Amino acid sequence: MNIREIFARNLRAVRRDKGLSQEELAHRAELDRTYISALERNVYNPTIDVVARLADALDVEPATLLQRTTGEDQK
């Protein structure tokens, strides 16, 4: 799994864990809802600034959105 796939999976998981819709996350991060959707589907590459904005909006560290899970393929 590459870093974009990991980010997409983690973004969706954290957003859902926080009970937020894509619309609410987009509002909090001052981004478009369709952009959030595209990020979660691994369509776009987020900039480091976008990762930071999303992390702030989700009240997590940016590393949380990029972290591999234990035993995950390192490729």
Rank of each mutant, 00 (worst) to 15 (best):
residue 47 T to G: 04
residue 34 T to F: 06
residue 10 N to P: 00
residue 74 Q to E: 11
residue 31 L to W: 04
residue 33 R to P: 12
residue 22 Q to N: 03
residue 71 G to L: 09
residue 18 K to M: 07
residue 64 T to N: 09
residue 60 V to G: 05
residue 63 A to G: 13
residue 2 N to F: 08
residue 18 K to C: 03
residue 25 L to M: 04
residue 61 E to P: 01
residue 53 R to P: 02
residue 69 T to K: 14
residue 14 V to Q: 05
residue 68 R to Y: 11
residue 70 T to Q: 15
residue 74 Q to N: 12
residue 10 N to R: 06
residue 25 L to I: 08
residue 28 R to S: 07
residue 21 S to C: 07
residue 51 V to R: 00
residue 69 T to E: 15
residue 3 I to D: 04
residue 5 E to D: 14
residue 14 V to I: 15
residue 56 D to T: 13
residue 57 A to H: 06
residue 9 R to N: 09
residue 56 D to L: 14
residue 15 R to K: 06
residue 55 A to V: 12
residue 71 G to K: 12
residue 36 I to G: 00
residue 56 D to W: 12
residue 48 I to S: 07
residue 19 G to A: 03
residue 5 E to V: 09
residue 36 I to W: 01
residue 28 R to E: 09
residue 67 Q to I: 10
residue 33 R to Y: 03
residue 57 A to F: 11
residue 10 N to K: 04
residue 31 L to Y: 05
residue 64 T to P: 00
residue 40 E to S: 01
residue 16 R to F: 02
residue 43 V to P: 01
residue 6 I to S: 01
residue 45 N to I: 13
residue 57 A to Q: 08
residue 9 R to W: 07
residue 5 E to P: 00
residue 33 R to T: 09
residue 18 K to G: 03
residue 42 N to G: 09
residue 25 L to E: 02
residue 50 V to T: 15
residue 63 A to F: 11
residue 4 R to E: 13
residue 55 A to D: 11
residue 51 V to M: 07
residue 65 L to F: 11
residue 5 E to T: 13
residue 65 L to C: 08
residue 75 K to W: 12
residue 32 D to A: 12
residue 16 R to T: 11
residue 10 N to G: 03
residue 11 L to T: 00
residue 68 R to C: 07
residue 56 D to P: 01
residue 73 D to C: 13
residue 68 R to H: 11
residue 7 F to E: 03
residue 46 P to L: 14
residue 25 L to K: 00
residue 7 F to R: 00
residue 72 E to W: 08
residue 55 A to S: 08
residue 27 H to L: 14
residue 13 A to M: 07
residue 20 L to C: 04
residue 18 K to W: 02
residue 45 N to V: 13
residue 38 A to L: 10
residue 73 D to F: 13
residue 61 E to R: 04
residue 75 K to I: 14
residue 75 K to S: 15
residue 52 A to F: 13
residue 40 E to G: 00
residue 67 Q to E: 15
residue 40 E to L: 01
residue 69 T to S: 15
residue 45 N to L: 14
residue 74 Q to Y: 11
residue 6 I to G: 00
residue 2 N to Y: 07
residue 69 T to F: 13
residue 16 R to I: 10
residue 6 I to K: 00
residue 44 Y to K: 04
residue 75 K to G: 13
residue 44 Y to E: 11
residue 1 M to Q: 06
residue 30 E to L: 09
residue 41 R to G: 03
residue 51 V to D: 06
residue 4 R to N: 14
residue 15 R to I: 06
residue 23 E to N: 07
residue 43 V to I: 14
residue 35 Y to W: 11
residue 53 R to L: 15
residue 31 L to E: 07
residue 35 Y to H: 10
residue 8 A to W: 03
residue 19 G to H: 02
residue 26 A to Q: 05
residue 14 V to R: 02
residue 29 A to Y: 04
residue 10 N to Y: 05
residue 74 Q to K: 13
residue 5 E to N: 10
residue 47 T to R: 09
residue 43 V to K: 02
residue 49 D to E: 15
residue 14 V to G: 01
residue 20 L to D: 04
residue 14 V to T: 08
residue 29 A to F: 07
residue 2 N to P: 01
residue 12 R to K: 15
residue 28 R to W: 11
residue 21 S to A: 03
residue 75 K to T: 15
residue 1 M to N: 04
residue 1 M to A: 12
residue 57 A to L: 12
residue 63 A to M: 10
residue 12 R to W: 06
residue 4 R to V: 09
